[in-house]
Design a protein around this nucleic acid. Structure first.
Lengths: 212, 212
DNA sequence: CAACGCTTGACAAAAAAATCACAAAGATGA
DNA sequence: TCATCTTTGTGATTTTTTTGTCAAGCGTTG
């Protein structure tokens, strides 16, 4: 296993995974890179090359078996593994994420929700009671927590991130507009929703100009 | 204006914009590509090349004037322009987005929220009353709507998207896990939150293996 | 005001990513 | 069974993106 796979490929995998799930749902058993490429709007060549990074799942003259391919990509992404997950920050975004059913299907088990606001503590979201931040340390010493989803205000993001990192979290999903960088070797995914919106604005502006 | 700017560059602009806002906040007047590169964790060369796509904002021996650069990037992204925006789907995610104050600062004015659920209609989010989907068409004929944020369930996403496209929306910000593709020339940004989470899972798995 | 140091903008080089093209192998059908 | 058709996997090629380099220009200092 010498060759390392580029992030560009990895970031496409969830998309393949989604499309394959769609195919399974409508009971399509096999798919060629060509047909998949048409559905996804990328080149067949790219699909073949991407999938080949992980081994030859396809068969000449036949294509790919949808179920096998789905399972294999799932394995690569780690869907078979369960990640114990907590949410810190039970505001609107925390709420929305806590209620997002898809996460469980993808291997992420929500086991705790924390907030600093006493008015929120005690409320139940999606079957889980919101705990006060004071309880975080104790909770994390009694439970293995793999991932912390941070939906706290910008001004406290780095403090909270440091804390969960020290307490042994393996990954952080950061929803604050502030980029996170930690000394610990914790994997971080920054989301930055509004960046996407800004790009949307740019593209609209550009299209309006081009139409003239 | 012959040369076209690559998406790779565009997608970095909001990040520059954020960092510059941070600098302004702490009253830093000037910044060199070298120092900015250290803060952002990218190469100085890339920063200079990116910024140069839009014209020479910098000055030899001095660096970049933070405020000027901030304003210029804002202009490129279209922050000075206002986008009239509606949200369709007042569930948890729609709620979270409706309450996200940052949007207004970035040029996006929320002027309407719609939902199909009669129990939600009439409630007020962030000063705006949720209207029933039946009212959408009338609303869009009486108001210019630039952007529709779609936080509806997957099964109705394409129907709703088609509708707002026909009614003249210029951009769609799609939060459903389903990729959107329309015939109309509407600009679409798909979000796919859970893709990011899946990548986080992959990276954690990978790091665990490498540590062995 | 001259000399020095810093930093940009531009171009060149390198690296990474995407695409092309085709031999090889399995599927299909007569 | 055999010929034909389809489609993969892969090395070569092209394109895109990132990084490196340096002359030229500006600011700063004495």
């Amino acid at each position: 296993m010498g060759k390392k796979i580029s992030m560009a490929v990895i970031r496409r995998l969830p998309r393949y995974y989604r499309y394959l799930a769609d195919l399974l749902r409508v009971d399509i058993k096999r798919i060629s890179s060509k047909e998949l490429s048409e559905r996804m709007g990328i080149t067949a060549s790219q699909i073949r090359q991407d999938l080949n990074c992980f081994g030859g799942f396809g068969q000449q003259g036949y294509g790919y078996n949808v179920e096998t391919l789905y399972r294999e990509i799932g394995k690569i992404l780690g869907v078979e593994r369960r990640f114990k997950t907590i949410i810190i920050g039970a505001g609107n975004m925390g709420n929305a994420l806590a209620n997002y059913e898809n996460f469980r299907n993808r291997g992420f088990d929500l086991i705790g929700i924390f907030d600093i606001d006493p008015n929120r503590v005690g409320h139940i979201i999606n079957g889980i009671e919101i705990m006060h931040m004071d309880k975080l340390e104790g909770f994390m010493k009694n439970n293995v927590v793999d991932i912390a989803i941070l939906t706290v205000p910008s001004h406290s993001i780095s403090e909270v991130a440091e804390k969960v990192a020290e307490l042994g979290v393996k990954g952080i999903w950061n929803f604050s507009p502030q980029d996170l960088k930690l000394s610990h070797d914790v994997v971080i995914e920054n989301v930055h929703l509004s960046d996407g919106l800004a790009v949307l604005g740019y593209r609209i502006k550009e299209q309006e100009q081009n139409r003239v």
